[in-house]
Lab assay of single mutants.
Amino acid sequence: MATGGRRGAAAAPLLVAVAALLLGAAGHLYPGEVCPGMDIRNNLTRLHELENCSVIEGHLQILLMFKTRPEDFRDLSFPKLIMITDYLLLFRVYGLESLKDLFPNLTVIRGSRLFFNYALVIFEMVHLKELGLYNLMNITRGSVRIEKNNELCYLATIDWSRILDSVEDNYIVLNKDDNEECGDICPGTAKGKTNCPATVINGQFVERCWTHSHCQKVCPTICKSHGCTAEGLCCHSECLGNCSQPDDPTKCVACRNFYLDGRCVETCPPPYYHFQDWRCVNFSFCQDLHHKCKNSRRQGCHQYVIHNNKCIPECPSGYTMNSSNLLCTPCLGPCPKVCHLLEGEKTIDSVTSAQELRGCTVINGSLIINIRGGNNLAAELEANLGLIEEISGYLKIRRSYALVSLSFFRKLRLIRGETLEIGNYSFYALDNQNLRQLWDWSKHNLTITQGKLFFHYNPKLCLSEIHKMEEVSGTKGRQERNDIALKTNGDQASCENELLKFSYIRTSFDKI
């Protein structure tokens, strides 16, 4: 039985969820670079991206490699990797027998973001014989899940209580170790020597080791999670996991709180800001991140802002960003909400898709409305799209047979046209069989910064309504002859009103 693990408890099935942008060198404390989270699957090609990484700022997932063999891993080693800020997950990587050479110096898994409450997941690794993470000293947050690894031993010899604050939620089941077939031998045991430290858990006094050649490092209890030197002297209180010299914040392997210019500090002093819960960055760093993602459509890219001495992905609820200094300031009234469309555009074809934009005031991208039916549609669209004030790209209304009016965009005031449909149009209306009105132009103002209007096959939309939009939106004169079809717009509506004058002759039985 794995020490510190839980057996036999019912657990939810383990679901495996399925960018080499360097964020800056980590400095003297770390020998390499800070790398983003990685999802490495199918083959070993991307694994080489770990070569210079000291910190993975995010998670590391290595999974679904069915053609790899043990010899493929023999020359692979990433000794610079010290810390993973989120979680480490391995799933069905064939041929991998140990992690001792792959990650010989991995010391800390912070667990800032977890995989279903777990910071370390080893699942269905069919050839893994031992973990071998002999320098792993601290899992700051989260638990361990090690399950269905039929060859995995050296679990009962690990004292997880020396690595985690609590072992109650560890789930370590259905491994070879369960069948008591392992016969784990710690260093020196074969020669009758006791080389590794022994600890007591559940009444068992057991030597602690990761492999037959690597003991588990056990520091004096007084050192807590700070770690200790090879001689057993406690590291500085700002260290986490390990250090090369005692009581020196510049000799830590990793930091308990924050890293700044080669030393570990309790908090980031001005003019620095907390970033990702582990390091200090200056304003320029946060500003660069903001600008890199301002026009990016890459998933996970955030326009970072500053709030409460932190550089964070977005302002919290009730705050909006001051564009001059990136500071989050309290909103006066309802907060603006910028919604970034991942692929640059979004099609609204149902109430469900409209709900995804609920509360958005600025759309960074283009909207395509293609709704053919739905219950209580006008009210639903207004509830979900009615706060949109600005669209950076274009607005396209296409084959939306259920629409009679666009009044559900009740606050839309600006279409920038930074991206144009077919390279020309910022407003595009095609084949809307029941569209009769755009907006009530006596109450609604709309500016279209650039781009043209396109109207074709809107049989109940009168040309007068379209011409009014040209005047109000500032697009009059931009359109070419064929942009607004004269014969297919309003051709099934009563669009022309003329005053009919009647004269009559009164007659009676005795007068003409």
Rank of each mutant, 00 (worst) to 15 (best):
T189A: 09
N149M: 00
I62W: 02
G142D: 06
H236Q: 02
T85V: 07
L174I: 08
P334W: 15
E151Y: 11
L128G: 01
P271N: 06
P336H: 15
I82R: 13
E231L: 10
V173H: 15
P270A: 14
F115I: 00
T140I: 08
E33L: 13
K310I: 12
N202P: 11
L60W: 00
L47E: 03
N308G: 05
T189D: 07
P70K: 15
C186N: 00
V121S: 01
K251I: 03
C223T: 00
G227W: 05
M38P: 02
V265N: 01
V126L: 14
P197E: 12
I163W: 01
R256H: 08
G111I: 00
C215I: 05
R41S: 00
N105Q: 10
I201A: 09
T140N: 07
K193G: 14
D101K: 10
G111Q: 01
A254I: 04
G227K: 05
C182D: 04
C209T: 03
V108C: 08
S225P: 12
D169N: 11
K224C: 07
I306W: 01
R145L: 07
G188P: 06
D261Y: 15
A156G: 08
S112W: 13
I312P: 11
M65K: 00
K193R: 11
L50G: 01
C301L: 04
K129I: 04
S161C: 06
C264E: 00
N242Q: 13
E124L: 00
N308P: 04
D261C: 05
G232M: 04
R263V: 08
E180T: 07
G318T: 02
S296R: 10
Q61V: 00
R297L: 08
G333W: 15
W278V: 05
N43P: 00
V55F: 12
C328H: 00
N43I: 04
E238W: 06
E33R: 15
E57N: 15
Q204N: 12
S161V: 05
T140G: 07
P249W: 06
Y273R: 06
I185N: 10
F66R: 04
D288P: 02
L29P: 14
E147V: 02
A190V: 10
S284I: 00
G37V: 00
N242P: 07
F285E: 03
S244W: 12
Y273H: 13
S317G: 12
C243M: 00
P249L: 06
T320D: 08
H59K: 01
C196R: 07
C182F: 04
N325Y: 07
L136Y: 00
H212W: 09
R297A: 08
L233F: 06
I185W: 15
L44C: 11
C286D: 03
N135Y: 00
T107D: 02
C223Y: 02
D277Y: 07
C182Q: 03
S324H: 11
L260W: 03
N282T: 05
N117G: 11
P270H: 10
L44M: 10
S112T: 10
N52W: 10
K100E: 10
C311I: 12
Y304G: 03
N322A: 06
S166R: 10
C186S: 03
E97D: 05
H226D: 11
I139S: 01
L63A: 01
G300D: 03
R279T: 02
E147R: 01
E238R: 07
C286L: 05
D177T: 04
T45Q: 13
L164A: 08
S284P: 03
H307G: 04
L64K: 00
H307D: 15
E97M: 14
Y304V: 11
D101P: 06
H48G: 01
P249T: 11
M125Y: 00
F205M: 07
V144L: 05
L102A: 01
G95Q: 12
N202H: 08
P220S: 04
T250Q: 06
G300T: 11
N308V: 09
P336F: 07
H291Y: 13
V206F: 13
E124F: 00
C182S: 03
L88S: 02
E49K: 15
L29G: 11
L64R: 01
M321E: 10
F258G: 13
T68D: 01
T229K: 04
V200P: 06
L128P: 00
S143K: 12
V121C: 13
S317I: 01
C53D: 01
G232D: 15
D39M: 05
T229L: 11
C182V: 01
V108T: 12
P313A: 14
P316G: 07
C335G: 02
Q245L: 10
S112F: 08
C239H: 01
G227E: 02
V55Y: 11
K217P: 05
D39Q: 00
A119C: 03
N202T: 10
I84Y: 00
H236R: 02
L332F: 09
S161D: 13
V55S: 04
V34P: 07
N179D: 05
C235S: 01
Y259I: 08
L327W: 08
T329I: 12
D184V: 14
K80V: 07
G300Q: 05
S317H: 03
V34G: 06
Q303M: 13
I306E: 04
R297K: 11
M83T: 09
C235D: 01
S237D: 10
G37I: 03
E124S: 02
D277K: 06
S244I: 06
Y94P: 02
H302A: 13
S317W: 05
I312F: 02
K80E: 07
E180F: 14
L81C: 01
G142E: 00
L90V: 04
Q245A: 04
C35K: 01
D72G: 04
R69C: 09
I185V: 14
G318V: 01
A156N: 15
I222E: 13
H212N: 13
C209R: 02
L63S: 00
I139C: 04
H290V: 08
R279Q: 12
Y87I: 00
F103T: 00
Q276H: 02
P36Y: 13
T267Y: 13
S112V: 12
D288T: 03
N295P: 00
V167R: 05
C219A: 02
I146Q: 04
G318W: 09
D248L: 06
L60P: 01
T85L: 10
T320W: 10
R110C: 08
Q287H: 08
L60M: 05
E124P: 00
C186G: 04
S77L: 11
V93H: 13
Q287N: 07
R297T: 09
N117M: 04
L81R: 00
N295F: 13
L131M: 15
L60C: 02
G32L: 05
L114V: 15
D177G: 12
R298Y: 09
M38F: 01
G37F: 02
K224S: 09
G132M: 01
H212S: 11
E151I: 10
L50K: 00
Q303I: 09
N170K: 08
K148P: 04
G142M: 00
R162F: 04
E51V: 13
D261N: 10
L47V: 10
H236N: 11
E130M: 11
C335Q: 01
I122R: 01
L174K: 15
L289C: 09
E180G: 13
Y272R: 01
L96W: 00
H307R: 03
E147M: 02
L99I: 07
D248V: 05
F116S: 01
K217Y: 09
Q299F: 10
G241E: 03
P270I: 13
T45A: 15
S317F: 14
C153W: 01
C252P: 03
P336C: 02
V281K: 01
C335W: 09
R298C: 09
N135W: 04
H48Q: 15
S324D: 11
S143P: 05
E130H: 08
L152S: 03
P31V: 12
Q287I: 10
F275K: 01
S213N: 11
H214T: 05
L164Y: 09
C335I: 04
N282R: 15
N150I: 14
N42I: 00
G300Y: 08
C243H: 00
P334F: 08
K193V: 06
P271K: 11
E147A: 01
F91C: 00
V93K: 01
R113W: 01
T140R: 05
T267A: 12
S324E: 04
V218M: 08
N149Y: 00
P246S: 12
G142S: 02
C255M: 01
I306A: 08
I56K: 15
C255N: 02
V305C: 10
G111L: 02
E314L: 06
L152T: 02
S98A: 03
V121T: 07
C53L: 00
K67E: 04
S225R: 07
E238H: 10
L332I: 05
R110W: 04
F285Q: 11
M38S: 09
T329V: 09
G262T: 12
F115K: 04
K148W: 04
N257S: 11
V200C: 14
D248C: 00
